[in-house]
Computed example of a mutant assay.
Amino acid sequence: MDDSTQKSKYKPVTVEKPIPLQYDLAILAGFDTNALDESRLKNDADTYLEEYTRDGTQLIINQIFKLPVTSSDLGVMAELPDLVTVLPREKPLPKPKPLTRWEKFAKIKGVQHRKKSKMIHDEATGEWVPRWGYKGTNDDGANDWLIPVPDNADPFEDQFTKKREVKKERITKNEARHRRNVEEAEIALNQSKGVNDVNTRSLRRTELQKQIIISKTATASMGKFDKHLEGEPKLKGVKRKFEPIIGDVKKEKESSLNILNKVVGKKGDIVNVRKAIAKRDQK
């Protein structure tokens, strides 16, 4: 292959531009402010844009090769500079979430978070099973067909029922802890927003009272025969006013006419059935 053929196949790495490009190598970007050649863009747009893009890419690669490099197991790596282009945000940065009890404790004691694998090897069965959830190792022997009775336990006590009750108590306790953590996080978030803790508790109390009233009305007696708690607000129903059965004939006539006017119209025009049938037959 002669030199002329090689030059036609491979373009030079040096690209000259009237106005130098502005680079932001942190995002591997180059900004070209030079004017486009309108005549070439109209005649052969695809070829011109391909050459234009190639020149811009070559200039960015040339700048990358000027950066300091470091060697690693993956090869020679270029150290990119800091970001230059600052993109505006549509919304402000989210505020950091308040720490939970465990996160506060771990921060004080210096406990490092260690990610555990989802699968674990069960030595009893010799298989890989999930660490949590369905068919996991945390079922506490729920599927055991035989449970040994401890020496200090009642021999007539059902160990299966006892194990289920212990698991239910543990779940209830965890749910209570979760609710407490959520409430504490909500209070901390409201304090950061400038909302008083007393107002938050009063709102929660009002909402709780409302839920109690709604649950009372779910019974067949609408809460009439239910036991009342201390300090529980009384149910306030809507009093309906009924007209007497025997009363003023004039008022009864007016109310009937009002209903009739709403149904057939204020003028009292009742539909002529014969005329309507005749019009239908004409069609």
Rank of each mutant, 00 (worst) to 15 (best):
E51A: 05
Y52C: 00
D55F: 01
D55Q: 12
G56L: 13
T57P: 00
I60T: 03
I61N: 04
N62W: 07
Q63D: 11
F65K: 14
K66E: 15
T70R: 15
D73R: 08
L74V: 11
V76E: 14
V76L: 14
V76H: 08
M77G: 01
E79V: 06
E79L: 10
P81Y: 07
P81L: 06
T85K: 04
L87W: 14
L87Y: 14
P88F: 11
R89I: 00
E90C: 04
K95V: 08
P96Q: 05
P98F: 04
P98Q: 04
T100H: 02
R101G: 06
F105L: 15
F105Y: 15
K109A: 11
K109I: 02
G110R: 08
V111N: 08
Q112M: 11
H113Q: 14
R114D: 07
K115W: 15
S117G: 13
K118C: 05
M119P: 00
I120G: 00
D122R: 01
E123N: 02
T125F: 05
T125V: 03
W128I: 05
W128E: 12
V129Q: 00
R131T: 03
G133A: 03
Y134Q: 13
T137A: 03
D139Y: 02
D139R: 02
D140E: 06
N143V: 06
D144H: 10
D144L: 13
L146N: 14
P150I: 04
A153Q: 07
A153M: 08
P155D: 01
